[in-house]
């Protein structure tokens, strides 16, 4: 990724400050009076959009490492994007607290399954989950698919499966979800616009 003008200045300023001192033999005896080191000096910037409300403020995600393959890019800070014409770098309390969401302790990180009547989650694999869901869906579609209504008109709908789509997911997700669901004949489809 080509280093933008902003990053170049930042890189050179920090390394110059640190290196000259040690070069002159001034390894500081003890931290007498210095500010906290600027934590974003060598982080990677990515432009993103806040997932919460519909103002869609511009974000800059600062992640660890410089995209080297062996460094897992962990997001350490999220700030407003000063170039964004609507937000101009500002954020609301939710947007400013996005790091709390990205690294939330209650993030779900592996598929879980609850068998009927049990009291606890059971960790499962993706294959188990998707295969079982696909089987359940095919089973139900074959049984409840309505080809013709009681007046004999072709309707080809599958009314017994419902789907609530996420209004915080991207257009591409929404488009593919819609394409898949309509091909299956699902009509009980909704999203947050309803509430």
């Amino acid at each position: 990724m080509q280093v933008t003008r902003r990053q170049f200045f930042k890189l050179s300023a920090a390394t110059l400050g640190g290196s000259t001192l040690t070069a002159l033999g001034f390894s500081p005896r003890e931290a007498l009076a210095e500010v906290r080191t600027f934590k974003l000096t060598r982080t990677t910037e990515t432009r993103n959009t806040c997932p919460y409300c519909s103002v869609a403020c511009g974000l800059i995600l600062y992640s660890l490492g410089d995209k080297a393959k062996n460094a897992k890019s962990e997001i350490i800070h999220i700030e407003g994007d000063p170039d964004h014409p609507v937000s101009r770098g500002s954020l609301c309390p939710k947007g400013a607290g996005l790091l709390g969401f990205v690294h939330s302790e209650t993030r779900v990180t592996f598929p879980e399954y609850r068998a009927p009547g049990t009291r606890k989650w059971k960790r499962v694999t993706w294959d188990f989950a998707l295969e079982r869901i696909a089987k359940l869906m095919k089973e139900d579609r074959d049984r409840h698919f309505v080809a013709k209504n009681d007046k004999g008109q072709t309707v080809n709908r599958w009314p017994t499966i419902g789907f609530l789509a996420a209004s915080a997911s991207s257009n591409e997700t929404g488009y593919l979800t819609h394409k898949v669901l309509r091909s299956l004949g699902i009509v009980a489809l909704d999203n947050q616009a309803r509430v």
Partner: peptide, 9 residues
């Protein structure tokens, strides 16, 4: 209704 999906909802 037999099944229901909640995608981010």
């Amino acid at each position: 209704m037999t099944g229901y999906f909640c995608q981010g909802f």
